[in-house]
């Protein structure tokens, strides 16, 4: 699987993501600096990592969404390339309008950094195919702005179309309807606050994130 990790000034989970991808897929991703206007040829997956791009100035992800590389990421998304945005990456995807809604300050105002229980809501996507529908997993979160909000019509649509990939199994940050991760309409873009790349090997204490990357690996190795 050919993957790339986008690096913004202030990204700080880019190496976690690269290491997670290397461990699970056996191939290190290309690191792409945000000033690039073109992506490497033939990518299967583009990962937008966690962190605090541009110091979260204005709004989390708002400045990164205007970066030159995001134009190329948008084009790739339209071509069906898999896009995974984790944490700040999820915020960037909403600010880029590749995903609906917005991520606001946690309802309790605290930065939350711990393992959280999640329910896999949709096990049909390439990202979640290796999980069972309704399966309980635990993946760490580390965020200040993870409170997912959208208007009721958008939330209804997300739920109705099976685009809620993960839900918090217990209250974490005030997210509307407990949403932890959502898919775009075509199913090739996933944004999620929990960090699957931090739960891929035994040393992490948990390996529930591993199957997300395995599912993608399987999806891209199948002939179209």
């Amino acid at each position: 699987m050919k993957s790339a990790v986008i690096v913004f000034p202030g990204s700080n989970c880019d190496r976690d993501m690269a290491e997670g991808l290397r461990i699970v897929t056996g191939k290190a991703p290309t690191m792409v600096w945000h000033r690039e206007t073109e992506l490497p040829e033939g990518l299967d997956l583009i990962a937008i990592p966690g962190g605090f791009s541009y110091g979260d100035y204005l709004r989390s992800g708002a400045m990164a969404a205007q970066s030159p590389v995001m134009r190329a990421v948008k084009d790739a998304a339209e071509r069906g390339v898999f896009i995974l945005g984790v944490c700040n990456g999820f915020q960037v995807l909403t600010e880029t309008h590749l995903l609906p809604g917005a991520l606001m300050r946690n309802a309790g105002l605290s930065f939350i950094c711990r393992d959280v229980p999640l329910t896999v809501e949709n096990s049909q996507s390439a990202f979640t195919a290796r999980y069972g529908a309704g399966e309980a997993v635990a993946i760490p979160v580390a965020h200040h702005d993870g409170n997912y909000q959208a208007d009721a019509a958008t939330l209804d649509r997300l739920e109705g179309e099976g685009r809620v990939a993960f839900r918090y199994a217990a209250e974490v940050n005030g997210s509307a309807r407990g949403i932890a991760g959502i898919l775009n309409e075509a199913g090739n873009v996933l944004g999620m606050m929990p960090h699957p790349e931090r739960a891929v090997e035994d040393a992490h204490g948990r390996t529930d994130g591993r199957r997300l990357f395995e599912g993608l690996l399987e999806a891209v190795s199948q002939p179209a």
Binding site: L58, A62, T94, P100, G101, A102, M104, A150, D151
Partner: peptide
Amino acid sequence: KLLANTVI
């Protein structure tokens, strides 16, 4: 385009 996120 930038200063406000009209979603919220």
